[in-house]
């Protein structure tokens, strides 16, 4: 794990006067998938946002991207440096068409770039063919699952090296969830590091290399997903924790 593309050390964050994430360490290597699980309201979303530079309150700790300290970088800088967060709730720009949404994700003035606009678009369309069919529809008129694909596709237009995804499966049908995770797998194979917050424990463990269980803002259990799936340790801890 020496080649970690994203390293987080001792991160604490919150909003307003509440601290909800306390002293969290994590790292993820290119092509690796890290799942973060836990009950609602334990700080998973705040964790992802804090890493991505969306800060609404007190903040401390270190975030390293390719070894460079980006702890104080605002969200737009983080995005241009190759870290993309897809927030929960399939937030798309409803007044823009699907094509416009995707194009918006391609930040044109980045110095280091691996793909051209056409290549990026082709890659997203290969992952989610339906986005090509619906290119001229306003994003607001799509179903939740399609909007989630737009949101993911938009983030991928910038060819991020680290992709953070917050609850991609929330409120979606099984088929759509399968399609989205298939896309995430393809991305990992091409070397993108993925951190995903997932409510569904089963999906989380099957679709990741490693897994962190967060409770009350702290990492409670961490380990290889296959082992955790077999041992049932997570289920037990949650069982106890949710009481």
């Amino acid at each position: 794990m020496s080649a970690a593309v994203l390293q987080v050390r001792g991160l604490s964050a919150g909003y307003g006067r509440m601290t909800v994430v306390r002293d969290i360490d994590l790292e993820v290597a290119p092509g690796e998938a890290l799942a973060v699980v836990g009950r609602n309201g334990v700080g998973k979303t705040t964790l992802l946002k804090a890493i991505a530079g969306v800060r609404a309150g007190s903040n401390s700790g270190q975030v390293l991207l390719d070894g460079a300290d980006v702890s104080r970088a605002p969200a737009d800088t983080m995005a241009r440096r190759g870290l993309a967060l897809v927030p929960e709730g399939h937030r798309v720009f409803g007044g823009l068409t699907v094509a416009e949404n995707l194009m918006l994700g391609f930040f044109p003035w980045r110095r280091s770039r691996t793909r051209s606009l056409e290549e990026s678009l082709a890659r997203v369309h290969a992952l989610f063919p339906i986005l090509a069919d619906f290119a001229d529809r306003p994003a607001a008129a799509l179903s939740g699952g399609q909007q989630q694909m737009v949101a993911l596709g938009q983030a991928l237009m910038a060819s991020p090296r680290v992709l953070l995804v917050d609850e991609p499966s929330a409120g979606l049908a099984q088929v759509v969830i399968a399609e989205i995770y298939a896309a995430l797998r393809t991305l990992r194979e091409s070397g993108t590091a993925v951190v995903v917050v997932e409510q569904n424990l089963d999906i989380a463990l099957r679709q990741s290399d490693r897994c962190l269980l967060v409770d009350n803002g702290r990492v409670v259990v961490a380990g290889r997903s296959e082992e955790l799936l077999v041992s049932g340790e997570l289920t037990e801890t949650i069982h106890g924790g949710a009481r």
Binding site: V37, R39, N40, Q199, N200, L201, T235, I238, H239, A242
Partner: peptide
């Protein structure tokens, strides 16, 4: 099946 927390 649908909720993580429902395992409680």
């Amino acid at each position: 099946g649908s909720f993580l927390g429902a395992m409680a």
